[in-house]
Design a protein around this nucleic acid. Structure first.
Lengths: 205, 205
DNA sequence: CTGACAGGCTAACGATGTTAGCCACTGCAG
DNA sequence: CTGCAGTGGCTAACATCGTTAGCCTGTCAG
């Protein structure tokens, strides 16, 4: 049913340490703070030394995007297959809720992983599809899955960027979206929880 | 019914020329090309001379965001109040379609205007609300309006960033979203076309 | 012992936004 | 007509960015 997470190729020890430091720096100080010199400082070395372990800043970002994608995938898979789901909550609502929770817990990482083009060529093959799979499982239909994912991303990114008016009750908005997609899933070709086998390729996160 | 567009404070002649050049540069060469030196070059002057007319790059961006917001607002207002709307297309579908069309026509401007935090303090007062008004008019309900807008933004930004799988039929996905929200609008407290008066404050674009 | 290599370092380059200070031209007051 | 202030250019320079080149030191295999 739900496929296995593709194994990410693991980095040499020191490179992994650099990525870990980069992640701390990113999440604690924000995107602009993710600088080769500051990253070096966090590690007690100078910026050029980082190049002994990684080919450049882009590689650091790719590694972080991979991590973000993988963790989001984990969270979403957990949500769809939850064995003791609170009775009454459909898979749609659970995936949406998990998406929001995960994104808000790592705002900078989420932004990094989801804005701009994905460096697909440098990513672990299959990871993107695997991370998007839960949407298909929850929606039962590829098109609806895509629509739901788009809604979720829009909600999250606009919330992170503080684009909503101050008094907004975002919980209600999420619920309204979930309801709309649940209705559509009912009216559409497939029903709530996944049918059986996926047919088409799926999108990421 | 639909309120008037707030008058943007207009810039001195030369400053307006700079903004115009910035816009051409942004849309033709992409966000990274929007550089003070390149902007100067496009105008036949040096970068520091720009500071005689505008306080800095941030001001250039703010002016561009204003323009993006205003034009999107125009397009959406046109869509909701369309007197000769193709019979059968609801306001919801028309606003969604207009949003997508407008965004895809000015991808870099859209991205600039919608990613990151809005510099609300520097914007023409009321512009943001005015630009978001059509969503409320189409959805008939503030919460649903917010959800629709989030869906639309998610769809557009993911399309611009080429995050969807290659073969995706995005027209279908938009239709699926429109359908879902139409169903919800029917089931919800208000019906398709706007009731009468707006009640709460609205979000942007 | 020697030599390769791993992993640090400094110096430097070409970008970026921005500031300081200089200079030419215009137009108005006296 | 003269003088002078404002307008709008300019160059030089600074700090910061990613990145490269080249050096040096320690470790460990042959």
């Amino acid at each position: 049913m739900t496929s296995a997470r593709p194994e990410p190729r693991q980095l040499p020890r020191r490179a992994a340490e650099i990525i870990a430091a980069a992640r701390v720096l990113l999440e604690s100080e924000g995107r602009d703070a993710l600088t080769m010199r500051r990253l070096g400082a966090a590690l007690g070395i100078r910026a050029p030394s980082i190049y002994k372990h990684l080919p450049g800043k882009h590689a650091v970002e790719v590694a972080l995007i991979e991590a973000g994608l993988a963790e989001m995938g984990e969270a979403l898979h957990r949500a769809v297959t939850d064995p003791q789901a609170p009775a009454g909550t459909g898979a749609v609502a659970r995936v949406l809720a998990a998406y929001r929770t995960e994104a808000l817990a790592r705002p900078s990482l989420y932004r990094l992983a989801t804005s701009g083009q994905l460096p697909r060529a440098e990513l672990t093959p299959g990871l993107e599809d695997w991370a998007g799979e839960p949407w298909l499982l929850a929606a039962g239909d590829p098109v609806l899955a895509q629509a739901m994912w788009s809604f979720a991303h829009g909600m999250v990114i606009l919330e992170l960027d503080q684009r909503y008016p101050d008094g907004s009750d975002l919980d209600r908005t999420w619920r309204a979206g979930a309801e709309a997609f649940n209705l559509a899933a009912g009216a559409g070709p497939a029903r709530d929880i996944a049918a059986k086998g996926p047919s088409g390729r799926e999108e990421d996160m």
